[in-house]
């Protein structure tokens, strides 16, 4: 397995606050990695740095050895990194199908875009809502739409920011199946999630963060037993607040 993504001493400061501190890790091709941590641990900021939506104060992010830092956001997407947002960002007045056509158009996809967009919607189980305005979707369907739009960029690496937040148990089950299918199709995944139980069924590796730094990295069960992780989860909640 070759390395797909490398974060090299990524640091992001906002004024006096260090949201991400010297984070270094790499993700192998085809892997599925969970990213956990209390609110304010720096997960979303790290996500933004990895996907070009934020520039690290120092450090480097490389995809197959090539730095992503100097790239415009759409170039990062073009080079194969896609993301979803913690709070879904559909194009609300556009129908579901059109939402998925936008990344296809932007990616210069040839052929019948509707058919291809339907194909992507099918992968996330949203084909039956293709014609609905996306403002009419349920929260669970919006998460799917968000994922479909990311998938339509044909990513090698997909970063999911809290895909299960706000979903019912049943919805989580269905979405988990979808995500497992993506993996089976060969997409590399990094998933931020607070619902640890559901997350652990999807990933074979977990990176835990606290106060901007990586405190544990490895097998899910080992990471969850790590004393630092236990402390961070039980003790850290009240002292920090989430960075957006």
């Amino acid at each position: 397995m070759s390395v797909l993504l490398e974060a090299d001493a990524v640091t992001r400061r906002f004024g006096g606050l260090t949201a991400v501190n010297e984070v270094t890790f790499s993700v192998e091709e085809g892997a599925a990695v969970g990213l956990i941590g209390a609110n304010g641990a720096g997960k979303t900021t790290l996500f933004n740095c990895l996907t070009g939506f934020d520039k690290p104060t120092s450090g480097d992010v490389r995809l197959r050895g090539k730095s992503l830092l100097k790239m415009a956001r759409h170039k990062v997407v073009k080079s194969g990194v896609a993301r979803t947002f913690q709070i879904v960002k559909p194009f609300p007045d556009l129908p579901v199908l059109a939402n998925v056509m936008v990344p296809l158009i932007a990616g210069g996809t040839k052929g019948d875009l509707r058919v291809q967009a339907m194909g992507v919607l099918d992968r996330v189980g949203l084909a039956h809502r293709a014609a609905s305005p996306s403002s009419q979707l349920s929260e669970g369907d919006l998460k799917r739409l968000e994922m479909a739009r990311a998938l339509a960029t044909k990513p090698q690496l997909l970063l999911l920011d809290e895909p299960f937040a706000g979903l019912s148990v049943a919805e989580i089950g269905v979405l988990s199946d979808t995500i497992r299918q993506l993996r089976a199709d060969g997409t590399t995944l990094i998933v931020v999630e607070h619902k640890i139980g559901s997350l652990l069924q999807l990933v074979e590796r977990v990176v835990a963060m606290d106060q901007g730094a990586v405190i544990a990295d490895g097998e899910p069960q080992a990471v969850m037993r790590d004393p630092a992780v236990v402390t961070a989860y039980l003790g850290g909640e009240a002292t920090t607040h989430e960075q957006h």
């Binding site: 997407v77 007045d93 556009l94 932007a106």
Partner: peptide
């Protein structure tokens, strides 16, 4: 239109 609806989402879609 997608830009008008949400610029960040459009960028995330590779626009």
């Amino acid at each position: 239109r997608s830009i008008q609806q949400d610029e960040l989402a459009a960028e995330a879609a590779g626009v």
